[in-house]
């Protein structure tokens, strides 16, 4: 999205100068820039995604990418153009990932309801199950266990988990998917 109005142009020049300073190691300018571009990024992401959480995931992905490729920005060129190109790419990647995930998973709203059978609410049984679950989680390969802990137990976002573990968002998704499939196979005998 190239800058259009004179206000956009002024804003673009400001962002461009902040990024040039950030490339030289000015952390304050960089932090200010990342905050200022958030509404722009959210507006771009909202064109392709409706769910607020998903928009925020895309925005975080864009921020991580901006950080990773910040050496490719040429201050002689429009900053918004560079930023919008990254945002569009990440947004499309998120759509593709969503397509792949939805093709592989099923959603069952009733699964969240408690069971009609009172025995299912029995504390002891729940404790036994929790113990078994703990043991099953410990038996998972390290990568899967780590992904499960970060994303499901600590409920970090993908971007946060990715930063903490040093693994890519895509590999975390694969690991957590495999972990859940392994646990499901263990407790439900392979049922979906």
């Amino acid at each position: 999205m190239p800058p259009e109005s004179s206000r956009d142009l002024a804003r673009d020049r400001e962002w461009s100068a902040s990024m040039a300073a950030a490339q030289n190691g000015d952390r304050a300018a960089y932090e200010r820039l990342l905050r200022e571009i958030l509404p722009f990024l959210r507006a771009l992401a909202a064109r392709q995604h409706r769910v607020p959480d998903r928009i925020e995931d895309v925005v975080q992905d864009v921020l991580l990418t901006v950080h990773r490729v910040r050496h490719t920005y040429d201050p002689a060129r429009p900053f918004s153009h560079w930023l919008a190109a990254i945002a569009r790419r990440r947004s499309i990647d998120a759509l593709r990932r969503r397509g792949r995930t939805e093709a592989a998973e099923v959603s069952d709203e009733k699964a969240y309801e408690t069971f009609a059978d009172p025995r299912a609410k029995d504390d002891r049984e729940a404790r036994d199950r929790a113990g078994g679950l703990g043991a099953a989680i410990s038996s998972l390969p390290r990568g899967q266990r780590e992904a499960l802990e970060l994303l499901k137990l600590r409920q970090l976002s993908l971007a946060e988990a990715s930063r903490e573990s040093g693994k890519s968002v895509a590999s975390l998704k694969v690991s957590v998917h495999r972990a859940i499939r392994a646990l499901r196979a263990k407790f439900m005998g392979g049922e979906r």
């Binding site: 950030a22 490339q23 030289n24 190691g25 000015d26 952390r27 304050a28 960089y30 932090e31 990342l34 905050r35 975080q60 921020l63 991580l64 950080h67 910040r70 050496h71 971007a159 946060e160 930063r163």
Partner: peptide, 12 residues
Amino acid sequence: LIERLAADAEPV
């Protein structure tokens, strides 16, 4: 995330 990225902003 922004705080962490800014803290990590070495010159490039």
